[in-house]
Write a protein that binds this DNA or RNA. Structure first.
Lengths: 153, 153
DNA sequence: ATAAACCTTGGAGTTTAATCTAAGGTCAAG
DNA sequence: CTTGACCTTAGATTAAACTCCAAGGTTTAT
């Protein structure tokens, strides 16, 4: 059992943040001491970890409340309603994944081209790197065929 | 060339948001009309796309300003300073990727177990699904050997 | 040439997610 | 038995990211 100060220290957040999450229905301590102190157990701690991870990848506290509300009735009853929620969140997650993979590729290529390679930089900004990673896909189709194609600005 | 209303409509944001981004140094129109209207070109539009994508995957506007500031001097001069910025952003992106993959796996397993399978639900919340996806990795090592192996919590 | 739909600015207001303050109760150590 | 670190509550303040408003100029269509 953790008191509010212990749990907040564990995740490097403020005790106030935990009270804030409680007020907004995201995380309540599973019990209280005789004198009214909040007491969090392991499961509360796992729930907090989830909240913080979800937040880190761009979900709002409302989104997270939705995710946490996915508590399917064991008797298979609530499944239909829940499935659409899960699937819509899964779509969001997969869209974010695709974006991030794009970013990662661009940052890697930026890092290699600008700072690792023997030549002077050709891709010189994250934007150019992103554009060139798009072009790379097209270039494959056109078999890397860069003639003097009139580039009008 | 887009006017502010056209560009904002294109990305389903408010014109005010574009003025806000301009005030905060994220995106300025490449020119103005005679009467002072903002005029955005294709490259401005690409920059906006980048901003919105970065935002969607959990970067703050400050983070995004950092990313956009990665404009390496063609002469290879600024590379050293820039490389550490790129690499630290890459680390952030890869951490987010790992989190999201975790989420995606859990949501998929939740969807399958609860709503697709012939059996009644066993994983009944996103939290249990996340926990069980951790266990799954351990289970692989033990060659899917679910005997009564004393599971001490 | 005048209305409707757009644009300009500066500044105020809103939402989300915390973070701080004040006034007081609790608990372990000296 | 009191000092200091911790906890309680309610409510005020902050910061980021918009979002709206007022007063006025511009463009386009009739």
């Amino acid at each position: 059992m953790y008191r509010i100060g212990e749990l907040s220290a564990l995740y490097d957040i403020k005790a106030d943040t935990l009270r804030f999450y409680e007020k907004h229905g995201l995380l309540s301590p599973s019990s209280r001491s005789d004198s009214g102190y909040r007491l969090y157990n392991h499961s509360d701690s796992e729930r907090l970890k989830f909240i913080l991870r979800a937040k880190a990848v761009g979900f709002s506290l409302n989104d997270i409340a939705d995710l946490l509300s996915i508590e399917v009735d064991k008797s298979n009853r609530a499944c239909a309603e829940v499935k659409s929620l899960v699937d819509s969140k899964l779509e969001q997650v997969e869209a974010k994944l695709a974006e991030l993979q794009h970013f990662a590729t661009s940052l890697k290529s930026l890092s290699n081209t600008c700072c690792g390679g023997p030549d002077s930089a050709e891709h010189c900004s994250i934007l150019e790197a992103l554009e060139s990673s798009d072009k790379h896909i097209i270039a494959k189709k056109e078999h890397h065929h860069f003639a003097h194609s009139g580039h009008k600005d």
